[in-house]
């Protein structure tokens, strides 16, 4: 049994300033996760050398791995920090901001590019308005439901994007998460109406074809979203779409 929880945290005071490392050591306690340790740390932010420093900035909200806000790189791997149990982690625990996203401060990053991606692919159902039209959507079989449900759980944490070797500031790639939402929206009885438009959007620059099938995305996704299945299905949909475009049946 360890007596300490030993953290190495990569810190950065602002988007433009250089990063630096600090080490912290807290008394061991059972049933802790990375966020609960960070919470303890901010009550007493003293480094291993005994210097008082500014509390670490990070992002969290639900503490149940459902809001997606707390993703960071933990021992090198992007994952939500609220569900990273200390007992399962090798020490010292390395905490770094979620890779690929611009750092705001310390472990806080700017994930607005994910939102841009979702807007870009029209990840919504086009409805007339948010009023009751006294009619629901058409029926969906339980089998189809259970496939769609898998994708509807994506919490935009950004882990898949962080792990994707094709995604980052160097490329236009929108990344796997928005692609999976295209798969979801295209399967909805009403969402289907905009399928062609969505497909054209992901057939444009930075779209589906920037995926190189590294499949890290699906390995790191904490919600087990079948991203690579979505990518395969979109491959099929775009193949057919390209044929339709070619032979004039848009």
């Amino acid at each position: 049994m360890q007596d300490w929880i030993h953290l190495r945290i990569r810190r950065q005071d602002g988007p433009e300033t250089p990063a630096y490392w600090q080490e912290f050591r807290l008394p061991y306690a059972p049933d802790q996760n990375v966020v609960s340790v960070l919470m303890r740390l901010r009550e007493h932010p003293v480094t291993i050398e005994g210097t008082w420093v500014e509390p670490v900035a990070w992002d969290s909200n639900c503490m149940e791995e459902v809001c997606g806000s707390c993703a960071m790189s933990i021992n090198g791997v992007p994952r939500p920090s609220c569900s990273a149990l200390i007992d399962d982690l090798a020490q010292p625990i390395l905490l770094e901001p979620l890779p690929k996203f611009p750092v705001v401060r310390d472990l806080l990053v700017d994930r607005s590019r994910m939102d841009t991606g979702l807007s870009r692919v029209k990840a919504w159902i086009e409805i007339d308005g948010a009023w009751d039209i006294h009619e629901g959507a058409p029926r969906i079989s339980p089998a189809e439901w259970s496939e769609n449900y898998l994708y509807s759980r994506c919490m935009s944490c950004g882990c898949c994007m962080a792990a994707c070797p094709q995604y980052g500031s160097h490329s236009d790639f929108i990344g796997p998460a928005p692609l999976a939402q295209v798969r979801l929206m295209n399967a909805h009885p009403t969402g289907r109406y905009d399928k062609t438009d969505r497909l054209h959007r992901i057939m444009a620059t930075g779209g589906l074809s920037d995926c190189g099938n590294a499949q890290n995305c699906v390995r790191v996704c904490p919600k087990a979203i079948p991203l690579t299945t979505a990518i395969g299905e979109l491959g099929r949909q775009t193949t057919l779409q390209a044929l339709k475009d070619l032979f004039g049946r848009g």
Partner: peptide
């Protein structure tokens, strides 16, 4: 009184409500 209409609207928005074998909510 508005609840059923709200649910229908959510459903139109694409909310993946669980289904019965018949495909309804």
């Amino acid at each position: 009184e508005s609840a059923p209409g709200l649910i229908r609207t959510f459903e139109r928005m694409g909310v993946t409500f669980s289904r019965t074998p018949e495909g309804i909510l």
